[in-house]
Design a protein around this nucleic acid. Structure first.
Length: 464
RNA sequence: GGCCCCAUCGUCUAGAGGCCUAGGACAUCAGGUUCUCAUCCUGAAAACCGGGAUUCGAAUUCCCGUGGGGUCACCA
């Protein structure tokens, strides 16, 4: 009975405060994979308790991103579920109820300090070079004082009470027990004066109510974890297992940010990255395949992944390796799928002749690292590019055109022979030069293959 | 600065006391294949932060430094 495996339930708790961050997807991946590995549920809870930071439409975009990656949740505001609502702004009474209960239990207290007083207090502490913690001013208030202030409608917040002289232990499953001296922990606000909870109250209440079994979140939460542990103890609730995953970093090792890297999921979408490649890359940040494989599917990852195997080191997000991996996925994709993806990526691809597309894709494939690189490869053969060439180069172009016009049968070997002949007939000319006078760059799709695809007529037109 | 976390090639990592002359991947460089460029193949260069301790033996355990990161809100 004791050994009965608990249902695994994980969650991500994004705030709708802007574009979806790649770090959110990183978290989602591990939460999703772990839940699926254990036939559990993965939920998305929207943490919209900061009214001032809300951005309209941000929630939608988060779900759109999750869909794009295929990290579909089991319960969320859009899907509902047994523990609805899943949007914190709709659960206010719940938090208020528990805040009250906590006060009655002696785990929290009313605080009437004004913003001004707090500011002054901090200034003072700063001058004295003391840690910036609340001075517990209102904790000393008598019951009568509190009642009196409450009855006159004075604004208040609810603060967490920290016990004196104890050690609070956070059991982190990735790095082991982490100990905090209680006097190092701030008596944080749990319920704000606008009636909204802060993260600390909301997360504990919701994780408990929603029966979250494994809390998998970024390392930046370690410092506030003792507050959460305390809350679980005060409420006498069973604690979930905590896994603090490493934070993704910029090349300069700081926390991955907009300033130094590409954090917006939309950037990857727009740049022609494939969701499966991104996920594969992300999976390798802090985890490694038991056979040291680099390329593997989400399903394979799910079947192998264990949170206990996570490394605690913050990895640097290396766009170059992601890009390589993306190219790998493109190369290994079958042509039909790739064509489909290209069309979805850029509607301009839809306008191309289907047959032409089918012929171009195989030769373009090995030359693309992102979907965005397809069109620039192909269009120079379809729409005559306007080039700025020297007179001599124009001359050569004409000569080449005349030379190719003599090819009897427009077949790969014959066209190639013709080109080779042209090159050997003219001293100082090589294939690289040919690219220059035909495409304007010294590289591109194989000329012969491309010429055969578009046909003799169009080729000559291109060179005219 | 206080507290907390972390530490193997430039980057992601393998490594759970002898299999390590430290392995793989990206990036870099050099060759090969090739109509250019890619792809593909071959190869090269490249790391255990420092110091103690434990041990017959330490990248692996322990301590102390050092370095990097995180966090210190009525934000999450």
């Amino acid at each position: 009975m004791d050994n009965q495996e608990k249902v695994v339930r994980t969650r991500i708790a994004p705030s709708p405060t802007g574009y979806p961050h790649i770090g959110t997807i990183y978290q989602a991946l591990f939460n999703y994979a772990f839940a699926h590995r254990h036939n559990g549920q993965f939920l998305v809870r929207i943490e919209d308790t900061d009214q001032s930071r809300l951005i309209e439409g941000a929630e939608d975009v988060i779900f759109k991103a999750l869909d794009w990656f295929g990290l579909t949740e089991d319960e969320s505001p859009r899907k509902n579920g047994p523990y609805a609502p899943y949007r914190q702004s709709e659960r206010l009474e719940t938090y208020q109820k528990f805040a009250k209960e906590l006060i009655e239990k002696g785990g929290a207290y009313y605080c009437f300090c004004t913003k001004e007083r707090l500011e002054e207090m901090r200034k003072q502490l700063q001058q004295e070079k003391k840690p910036l913690r609340y001075d517990r001013h209102c904790r000393m208030l008598s019951k009568e004082d509190v009642e009196q202030k409450l009855s006159t409608g004075e604004q208040y917040v609810v603060r967490l009470k920290i016990p004196d002289n104890t050690t609070i232990t956070v059991k982190d499953e990735i790095r082991g027990d982490i100990e905090f001296r209680s006097e190092e922990v701030d008596e944080q606000v749990l319920l704000k004066s606008d009636g909204f909870p802060t993260y600390h109250l909301a997360v504990v209440v919701d994780d408990h109510l929603m029966k979250i079994s494994h809390v998998v979140r970024g390392e930046e939460w370690i410092t506030s974890a003792p507050k959460h542990v305390l809350l679980y103890e005060y409420f006498d609730w069973e604690m979930p297992r905590f896994y603090h995953t490493p934070v993704l970093r910029n090349p300069d090792k700081s926390k991955l940010s907009k300033r130094h890297g590409h954090t917006n999921v939309g950037w990857y979408t727009d740049s022609g990255y494939l969701p499966e490649a991104i996920l594969n890359y992300l999976a390798l940040m802090g985890w490694s395949h038991p056979e040291e494989k680099e390329i593997f599917s989400l399903d394979e990852f799910i079947s192998l992944f264990d949170l206990a195997d996570m490394k605690p080191v913050g990895p640097i997000f290396d766009l170059a390796k992601l890009t390589w991996m993306n190219g790998m996925y493109i190369r290994e994709m079958d042509d039909a799928t790739l064509i489909q993806r290209l069309k979805e990526f850029d509607s301009q691809v839809t306008t191309l002749d289907e047959k032409t597309l089918e012929l171009f894709v195989p030769i373009a494939k090995t030359r693309m690292k992102t979907l965005a690189e397809f069109l620039p490869l192909v269009t120079p053969f379809l729409d005559k590019p306007s080039l700025s060439l020297s007179d001599e180069e124009k001359q050569q172009r004409k000569a080449l055109s005349a030379h190719l016009a003599t090819v009897q049968e427009w077949k790969t070997e014959l066209v190639l022979d013709s080109l080779k002949q042209f090159v050997s007939n003219n001293t100082g000319i090589n294939f690289k030069y040919l690219y220059k006078i035909i495409l304007g760059t010294n590289q591109g799709l194989p000329l012969v293959d491309a010429f055969v695809i578009i046909g003799k007529e169009k080729t000559l037109e291109l060179l005219s």
